[in-house]
Amino acid sequence: MTPNQFTRPIVWIHGDCLNPYGPALQAYPGAPAIWVWDDALLEEWRISLKRIVFMYECLLELPVVIRRGDVATEVLAFAREHAADGIATASSPSPRFRAICDRLRNELPVAVLPVEPFLAYTGRLDLRRFSRYWATAEKYAFGQKPLFDDQ
Protein backbone atom coordinates (compact mmCIF):
# COMPACT_ATOMS: atom_id res chain seq x y z
CA MET A 1 0.00 0.00 0.00
CA THR A 2 1.27 3.46 -0.79
CA PRO A 3 0.39 6.58 1.17
CA ASN A 4 -2.03 9.15 -0.16
CA GLN A 5 -3.99 6.56 -2.10
CA PHE A 6 -7.22 7.66 -0.43
CA THR A 7 -9.18 10.87 -1.01
CA ARG A 8 -11.40 10.62 2.12
CA PRO A 9 -9.54 8.40 4.59
CA ILE A 10 -9.86 7.95 8.29
CA VAL A 11 -6.87 7.20 10.48
CA TRP A 12 -6.98 4.36 13.00
CA ILE A 13 -4.65 4.99 15.94
CA HIS A 14 -3.61 1.92 17.97
CA GLY A 15 -1.46 1.27 21.03
CA ASP A 16 1.79 0.64 19.19
CA CYS A 17 1.93 4.14 17.69
CA LEU A 18 0.63 6.91 19.97
CA ASN A 19 2.82 9.42 18.18
CA PRO A 20 1.63 12.71 16.68
CA TYR A 21 4.37 12.22 14.08
CA GLY A 22 3.32 8.64 13.31
CA PRO A 23 3.13 7.63 9.66
CA ALA A 24 -0.69 7.61 9.27
CA LEU A 25 -1.20 11.07 10.79
CA GLN A 26 1.71 12.35 8.71
CA ALA A 27 0.37 10.87 5.48
CA TYR A 28 -3.14 12.19 6.10
CA PRO A 29 -2.93 15.33 8.23
CA GLY A 30 -6.38 16.58 9.18
CA ALA A 31 -8.11 13.28 8.42
CA PRO A 32 -10.62 12.13 11.07
CA ALA A 33 -8.79 9.83 13.46
CA ILE A 34 -10.11 7.30 15.95
CA TRP A 35 -8.84 5.29 18.92
CA VAL A 36 -10.91 2.41 20.29
CA TRP A 37 -10.37 0.93 23.75
CA ASP A 38 -10.40 -2.81 23.13
CA ASP A 39 -12.66 -3.87 26.00
CA ALA A 40 -12.06 -7.59 25.42
CA LEU A 41 -8.27 -7.13 25.44
CA LEU A 42 -8.36 -5.01 28.59
CA GLU A 43 -10.07 -7.89 30.37
CA GLU A 44 -8.02 -10.65 28.76
CA TRP A 45 -4.77 -8.99 29.84
CA ARG A 46 -6.30 -7.68 33.10
CA ILE A 47 -4.86 -4.24 32.27
CA SER A 48 -4.54 -2.10 35.38
CA LEU A 49 -5.91 1.41 35.76
CA LYS A 50 -2.44 2.97 35.72
CA ARG A 51 -1.80 1.63 32.25
CA ILE A 52 -5.12 3.04 31.04
CA VAL A 53 -4.30 6.44 32.55
CA PHE A 54 -0.89 6.48 30.85
CA MET A 55 -2.34 5.64 27.44
CA TYR A 56 -5.22 8.09 27.88
CA GLU A 57 -2.73 10.88 28.56
CA CYS A 58 -0.94 9.94 25.34
CA LEU A 59 -4.26 10.07 23.46
CA LEU A 60 -5.09 13.52 24.80
CA GLU A 61 -2.11 14.88 22.87
CA LEU A 62 -3.32 13.34 19.61
CA PRO A 63 -6.08 14.69 17.30
CA VAL A 64 -8.22 11.64 17.86
CA VAL A 65 -11.78 10.67 18.76
CA ILE A 66 -11.78 8.19 21.66
CA ARG A 67 -14.31 5.35 21.77
CA ARG A 68 -14.50 1.83 23.19
CA GLY A 69 -15.87 -1.60 22.34
CA ASP A 70 -15.04 -4.03 19.56
CA VAL A 71 -12.23 -2.35 17.63
CA ALA A 72 -13.07 -3.39 14.07
CA THR A 73 -16.78 -2.67 14.55
CA GLU A 74 -16.08 0.80 15.94
CA VAL A 75 -13.46 1.74 13.33
CA LEU A 76 -15.81 0.70 10.52
CA ALA A 77 -18.69 2.63 12.07
CA PHE A 78 -16.45 5.71 12.28
CA ALA A 79 -15.44 5.21 8.64
CA ARG A 80 -19.08 5.10 7.60
CA GLU A 81 -19.84 8.28 9.55
CA HIS A 82 -17.18 10.04 7.49
CA ALA A 83 -18.01 8.29 4.21
CA ALA A 84 -14.38 7.18 4.13
CA ASP A 85 -12.82 5.46 1.13
CA GLY A 86 -10.04 3.87 3.15
CA ILE A 87 -8.38 3.41 6.54
CA ALA A 88 -4.77 4.39 7.23
CA THR A 89 -2.86 3.08 10.21
CA ALA A 90 0.68 2.42 11.44
CA SER A 91 2.27 -1.01 11.30
CA SER A 92 2.42 -3.32 14.33
CA PRO A 93 3.81 -6.83 14.92
CA SER A 94 0.78 -7.78 17.06
CA PRO A 95 -1.31 -10.74 15.84
CA ARG A 96 -4.41 -9.01 17.16
CA PHE A 97 -3.61 -6.01 14.96
CA ARG A 98 -3.42 -8.30 11.93
CA ALA A 99 -6.75 -9.92 12.78
CA ILE A 100 -8.41 -6.51 13.12
CA CYS A 101 -6.96 -5.36 9.78
CA ASP A 102 -8.36 -8.49 8.14
CA ARG A 103 -11.83 -7.63 9.41
CA LEU A 104 -11.50 -4.00 8.31
CA ARG A 105 -10.49 -5.13 4.81
CA ASN A 106 -13.79 -6.93 4.41
CA GLU A 107 -15.34 -3.50 4.07
CA LEU A 108 -12.63 -0.98 3.13
CA PRO A 109 -9.05 -0.89 1.88
CA VAL A 110 -6.49 -0.52 4.67
CA ALA A 111 -3.09 1.16 4.26
CA VAL A 112 -0.64 -0.12 6.88
CA LEU A 113 2.15 2.45 6.88
CA PRO A 114 5.60 1.59 8.27
CA VAL A 115 7.07 3.49 11.18
CA GLU A 116 10.59 4.81 10.78
CA PRO A 117 12.83 1.70 10.91
CA PHE A 118 15.50 1.29 13.58
CA LEU A 119 17.85 -0.45 11.17
CA ALA A 120 18.82 0.99 7.80
CA TYR A 121 18.77 -2.57 6.49
CA THR A 122 16.17 -4.76 4.84
CA GLY A 123 18.20 -7.94 4.29
CA ARG A 124 18.08 -11.24 6.13
CA LEU A 125 18.59 -11.33 9.90
CA ASP A 126 19.21 -14.47 11.94
CA LEU A 127 16.80 -14.26 14.89
CA ARG A 128 17.75 -17.49 16.70
CA ARG A 129 19.57 -15.52 19.41
CA PHE A 130 20.17 -11.82 20.01
CA SER A 131 23.91 -12.28 19.45
CA ARG A 132 23.28 -13.63 15.95
CA TYR A 133 20.85 -10.80 15.16
CA TRP A 134 23.20 -8.17 16.54
CA ALA A 135 26.21 -9.55 14.63
CA THR A 136 24.52 -8.21 11.49
CA ALA A 137 22.23 -5.50 12.90
CA GLU A 138 24.92 -3.57 14.76
CA LYS A 139 26.43 -2.36 11.51
CA TYR A 140 23.10 -0.73 10.58
CA ALA A 141 21.88 0.36 14.00
CA PHE A 142 23.64 3.70 14.08
CA GLY A 143 21.49 5.32 11.43
CA GLN A 144 23.16 7.30 8.73
CA LYS A 145 26.29 7.84 10.76
CA PRO A 146 29.04 5.25 10.30
CA LEU A 147 29.82 3.22 13.40
CA PHE A 148 32.97 4.24 15.25
CA ASP A 149 33.81 6.80 12.58
CA ASP A 150 36.81 8.12 14.47
CA GLN A 151 38.66 4.82 14.34
Binding site: N19, L49, K50, F54, M55, Y56, C58
Partner: peptide, 11 residues
Protein backbone atom coordinates in the same frame (compact mmCIF):
# COMPACT_ATOMS: atom_id res chain seq x y z
CA UNK B 1 -5.56 -2.43 40.83
CA UNK B 2 -6.56 1.16 41.44
CA UNK B 3 -3.09 2.66 41.74
CA UNK B 4 -2.00 5.42 39.33
CA UNK B 5 1.61 5.97 38.36
CA UNK B 6 3.34 9.33 38.73
CA UNK B 7 4.69 8.75 35.20
CA UNK B 8 2.62 10.81 32.80
CA UNK B 9 1.80 9.74 29.30
CA UNK B 10 2.14 11.89 26.21
CA UNK B 11 4.60 13.14 23.66
Amino acid sequence: SGEVSATRGGR
